[in-house]
């Protein structure tokens, strides 16, 4: 049974804190004074219409090159990430699964999955692939190139993340461009991460993905609009966001009272 509200088991505070985050693109505020907290070992979902700022939030937490000029702060285990490079953030245990994973012409799955693996043994690499439903015999020697489908690359990327053994995984649209079978494997991997105490942040506008989470945030027009149980966010998203046509023009009266 999933808990619907954040757990502070053991008295732990949030693992990740986003504090008053503002990121602008020209005149537009893509992230507008966002304040969020994520709890260790929980699966969180950030939902919202296209253009709400979900991917920007993940990219900013990871510190990607076009997402470093922000106001506010992002803290991981209480430490500000502001001046940390991508690899330094990864060194703290943060990683990102891209919506469309990169291709690496000529680089084998073995090299790619092993690149960031904590344990680069053959057994560990094979286990990581098996956990995402890929046969190591078939895939370890293949290149991460155009001969792989988007779904295969997505699963291989997730295998590389499992092998890395991170503490926080940002997953941008994990259902994008994949079939039902592959999606089920990705859901299995999300549960595996949670079982190992890893914090997961799902970026999505899919209700199926949202339902994998313990707790959700809803963004609209760069602002945090609602937070709470999956049922609450799913109901609002279905009743208000979808009919709205994702115009990113929220009705202020519908924002959670404590966020106004």
């Amino acid at each position: 049974m999933k808990s619907n509200e954040p757990s502070f088991a053991g008295g732990e505070g949030p693992i990740l804190q986003v504090e008053g985050l503002v990121l602008e693109r020209g005149e537009k505020r893509v992230l507008d004074d966002l304040t969020l907290e994520f709890w260790p070992g929980q699966v969180h979902a950030v939902v919202g219409p296209n253009g709400a700022g979900k991917t920007t939030l993940a990219a900013t937490i990871m510190g990607l090159s076009d997402y470093t000029a922000f106001q506010g702060d992002i803290r991981f285990d209480g430490e500000s990430l502001r001046n940390l490079s991508i690899d330094q953030r990864a060194g703290r245990g943060i990683t990102l699964a891209w919506q469309e994973p990169a291709r690496f012409e000529g680089l084998t799955v073995r090299s790619f999955v092993g690149a960031g693996a904590r344990d680069r043994s053959e057994a560990r690499l094979r286990d990581a692939l098996q956990r995402v439903g890929l046969d190591p015999e078939e895939y370890l020697g293949r290149a991460v190139d155009r001969t792989l489908s988007g779904g295969e690359r997505k699963r291989i990327e997730l295998a590389s993340i499992l092998a890395m053994e991170p503490r926080l995984v940002l997953m941008d649209e994990p259902d994008s461009g994949i079939d039902v079978e592959a999606l089920n494997r990705i859901f299995d991997a999300i549960r595996h991460l949670k079982d190992r105490g890893v914090t997961v942040l799902l970026i999505t506008h899919s209700l199926a993905v949202l339902r994998q989470a313990d707790h959700a945030f809803l963004l609209c027009a760069g602002k945090l609009w609602k937070k709470g149980s999956i049922e609450k966010i799913e109901t609002f998203f279905g009743d208000s966001c979808v009919p709205c046509g994702h115009r990113n023009e929220p009705d202020r009266s519908e924002r959670d009272a404590d966020l106004k």
Binding site: S85, R89, T95, A102, G106, S111, A115
Partner: peptide
């Protein structure tokens, strides 16, 4: 490619070397 590998913990030089290794590999198509 670079940022993907860096998000797995490789520094910029390590990530670049790995990408070049792929480019120069017989597996390149």
């Amino acid at each position: 490619q670079l940022e993907t590998l860096m998000s797995r913990g490789l520094d910029e030089d390590q990530a670049t070397d790995l990408i070049i290794e792929g480019l120069l590999s017989p597996a390149y198509r």
